[in-house]
Design a binder for these strands. Sequence first.
DNA 1: GAGCACTGC
Length: 798
Amino acid sequence: MSWKGNNQKLHTKFEDDVPKNEVLNTPEYNDEVTSTEVNKSKKRKRKKKTSNDLEAKDQENQTNISKDVNIEISNGNDLTVESPNSKQVKSIDQEDRKIHKLPKVNNKKPKISTKLKTNGNGKPKTVNFFSDDEEEQRDGRGIELSKESRILKSKQLLKIRETLPIYKSKDEIISKLQKERVTILIGETGSGKSTQIPQFLLPLNKKSIAVTQPRRVAAINLATRVAEEAGSALGDKVGYSVRFDNKTTHHTKLKYLTDGMLLRELMVQSSLPEYSTIIIDEAHERTVLTDLLMGFLKELLTKRNDLKLIIMSATLDAEKFSKFYNDAQILYVEGKMYNVDRLYLGEPVEDIVDASIKSIVQVNNGELEGDILVFLPGQEEIDKCVGLLERIAPGLPREAPLIVPLPLYAALPPVEQAKVFLPLKARRRKVILATNIAETSITVPGVRYVIDSGLRKVKVWRHQLGLSTLLTAPVSKASSTQRAGRAGREREGKAFRLYTEDDYGKLPNQTEPEISRSNVTSPVLMLKRAGIDDILNWSWLEHPGQESLLSSLTQLYQIKALDDQGKITKLGLQMAILPLEPQLSAILLNAYETGCLTQVVDIVSCLSVDNLVMNPQSESRDEVNEKRLSLCILGSKYGDLLMLKELLDFYIQFDNSRERQQWCKELSLSFRGFKNVLRVRNQIRQYMIMLTKDQHLFDEDEEIGNKPMDISSVLKAFLIGFVSNTAIGMPDRSYRTTASGQLISVHPSSMIFGKKADAIMYTDYVYTTKGYARNVSVIDLSMLQEAGSHLLASKTKV
DNA sequence: GAGCACTGC
């Protein structure tokens, strides 16, 4: 690879037939070529080695991998835990906006050694790794501790907590937080802000404290950790609340919850009377839900004088948050990250897969021990790299460690994902090829080198066309800093950026907030439910744009969630309560009226679970497709929605989970996905019983079992929500959308791919190489006309 | 005849 300041050039693309020496160059990274960032960070005092995993990890959203994977850790594998060096806390004062240094605290570091537990017989204990099944996760944590041992544990943990940088400035932080109603708290990774700040405030709050997280696993892990620190049983003083799992009681004073859950609480009681302090964590991620929360809370602050708000963020975008809350004070807390050298290419590359491979080989040949994490935009690039690496690895020089390539992306089966956590034999080096999932959601231990393509995939909603596109786009500076930081979690590391320093300079500072490129139909319905009439002038942290809002209002009017005055209807209120997209809620409510609710709940539940029907491996693709077609008689005739219903029926019929698992494997379906489908189904049923006040709503169907279903009613119900997602068949087997006349193709993964139909309805329309309809059903023209009359009528009114 | 980043209720 040719890096800046290095005359070596890329001559050929890396291919199988390229002579090995072409790629086996000795490393040519030029350490002198560093960014201003690096120079700056080099000037900072080098930090001493710390590997206090417990404290560092509770700041990160450790992810669920599989509960199925048992990982054995060999005996005698001691973890040496050292506390961080003395740290400073800087604060930006509200009046002069200058950075003040808080007093430095000298801190002698106690050395704590933690031995991994054994089973008493000297054999290593089997450690269960991250499960996202909370039931089993709790089991994995062992027996409930007695009150005495909880207090003892809490005292032990206090020693570690006291070494955290944030602990040193406890009093000062508390007094600053007490003075103001809103605080923006910037804390670097590992500062301990998510675990410590809420505990500092606990004695000062009359009511409860809520801490929101973008991901459920983060909420659960933080609550578990903080409960231990506080000597509380989980769910007692400290608890959590996420979908399908609530570990709180009326005693709970500190509650970690997903931001979706807090929004749901807002929908029920707009003043959130339970809480006296609300902390929004990970605000820099700017998810749609966090953005919405921040808007709602801004309005709530004017109504509730006793409410305090803390916005926690990892990057320096504090100004925007501060301005939004009328120049709120900003506090800055330093974390404990190691220095990461950043190296750039001298010239831009065209082929990112080729460049990645070459860099991996170079790093492997020339750098000290430590794993390599490669950020690539998507599955396609990752699979290519893995394939190439597997071929060349055995032929690489013996002096260098053997490369073990490991893919990591969300659609990968959990067992495969978990492999990145497995320890390797000596003289081997993990090369983890990951999407953005490794940027925030999954923290891989042992990484010392990051190779960053500077690219990611991003879904962009085009409200004019009613379709989403999936684009490969450059990341932001904040994102590339975050990626580089993955190399500095345990010791000093290096980040190799597969772009020039010039190109880095051209990147946007922050990632564009999700809300400005998303379909906002659901957020708009939430606002309407909260009684906000003037959607266009609401306190948006980021305004989604007038056109996007108007298109959402039209959508909501079409599904009868809003009346022609733009007021929320009785139906709309019910839709806002259901934990689904408004379109799917509308479909359910219609199905209730027409008597096919049970079937529609089943299908909607399947639609709510990602990666349920997986893409079979290419070698078994035809076989699996054949099996699915012959098994799903209705699906092969009417399309994917009915296939889902048939698959779920089959799944339920099996007696035990072993059979279910086997069956899923044969048809390339997600076993875990189906378990989730059943949870979603149960939840939706409960909601429907609540809305209809009919306790016996689903009783009859349970008794009769599989009564023949009225296919026409089911499809008609779906047309209520997806009438604008329809297309008419043309003589040449293509389809044109009814909404805009665009050419659209049935996605080859669909049951009705290659079949001829008069008209189709689809739940997704994604533009990749061309416009594809996914989750496709065959419908009658007469059905479409019937449903379309409502659409036409609505168009003349709006 | 294609291949989709990541979350949440």
